[in-house]
Nucleic acid binder design. Structure first.
Lengths: 227, 227
DNA sequence: TCGCGCGACGAACGTCTGTTTGAACCCAGA
DNA sequence: TCTGGGTTCAAACAGACGTTCGTCGCGCGA
């Protein structure tokens, strides 16, 4: 329980969310267009001209508002990662409260799975953000990979909770299984869904995220309970 | 068993392996340097000049021997994917022979896990090839993504074997769980190993691939046995 | 009303990119 | 020895890229 204290629910930066009150329409147009294009085509495959054209703004806007193309990517990544980590930390904290500081494995995993799956719902406008995060994790700059080491402090809460839930397991086993679970999440890219849909002959429906959550929990919980 | 017939052990192209007999030192130097750099830095982050400098050959060599930078990437990808698929198919076939056409889940998963893990052994010179394949899967061109649809016929063998091993499961459940298992594999990138090593405070040793195989099998087998 | 500053704009800059060119080179076969 | 096809080489090409520049327009405070 000491590891699940609510002292710092958010992990990343104070989250200035630039300045949504001052109607900076251009800045947020750039932000949204860039996130969308990055998520769909990758960072290197999208030029500043592509972004500004999609956003309907001037070419120089990216450098004026964000400093550079790299800084723009980093800003989007920091924002979305912060939001995701906060949702996960909140769910983990709630699960901890419900179980006197010792939530069961399935609820810990649910705190890890549910937020990105909620975002991935076709009815959710954050749908593209999940794809952005997944892609940014593997294509990110060196600067971002360093920032991801900060993310480790976020994952540490989950690792501690899992060790508490399964004190009989060797700690290294818990870490490896957490690694496997994260792999399950990061594989949820559009292209992989399409491949799976094609492989299964149309049996797998991507849209039903609630059912997918249950499937992932069934699989991962059983995996964690092994041994 | 009908799905595990040995008729087409290899999935991809006839595998010309260009021409290793004619001492085309330049061509294979380009091939190896490109695979290495692509695996470590990504396709877009490596220029033709980087490749030829690393290989110690002339700049025009890439276009002369492979046609274009894209074709070079595709050639490496086709070769390595073919080799990996062949090893997997062979292991699956052998497991099928050992169990009268109905191998258990653990052996099917072993056929999926073992080849890339054997390659990933620090003592193996194919170590970099695994990283290349993983990276190419997510950063590949549209042409490569189409070629990956061919890879589906390779995965179909494993899907059929799993359905046979667990006939009580709904087929769509098998497909989803196969998807989860593939996610576990594709997450085995250098950067993720480093992150895990950092998160666990040095508890996880990347080098011991035999132990990692056991860990992955324990987790994935239990996940597949759920429900 | 004036002046100041923020933001948007078109245009340009320098660099790096993949690719192509045409000549030099090498070695086997006539 | 001469010839020719395959290979390597330095050099250049055209285009795309991220970034920067100087200017202009608008609205707010003095």
């Amino acid at each position: 329980m000491s590891d699940l204290t609510p002292d710092t629910p958010e992990i990343t930066a104070p989250e200035v969310v630039f300045d949504e009150e001052t109607h900076a329409a251009t800045k947020s147009a750039v932000f949204n267009a860039a996130e969308r294009l990055f998520a769909l085509q990758g960072f290197q495959n999208v030029s500043v001209r592509d972004i500004t054209a999609e956003a309907g703004v001037n070419l120089a806007s990216v450098n004026y508002h964000f400093g550079s193309k790299d800084a723009l990517l980093f800003a989007i990544f920091r924002r979305r990662t912060g939001e995701l980590n906060r949702e996960r930390a909140r769910m983990l904290h709630e699960a901890s409260d419900r179980h006197a500081g010792k939530p069961p494995v399935r609820e810990i995993l649910a705190a890890l799975f549910a937020p990105p799956l909620r975002w991935a719902d076709p009815a959710n406008d954050r749908r593209i953000s999940v794809q952005f995060i997944i892609r940014a994790r593997s294509e990110g700059t060196a600067e971002m990979r360093d920032a991801l080491q900060n993310d480790v402090s976020h994952l540490a809460r989950f690792a501690e909770a899992l060790k508490t839930a399964r004190p009989d397991l060797a700690p290294e086993t818990v870490y490896w299984r957490l690694h496997f679970v994260l792999g399950m999440i990061h594989n949820n890219r559009f292209a992989e869904f399409d491949r799976l849909h094609h492989l299964s002959g149309g049996l797998t429906r991507e849209g039903d995220v609630a059912a997918l959550l249950t499937r992932m929990l069934d699989f991962a919980e059983a995996g964690f309970m092994a041994g």
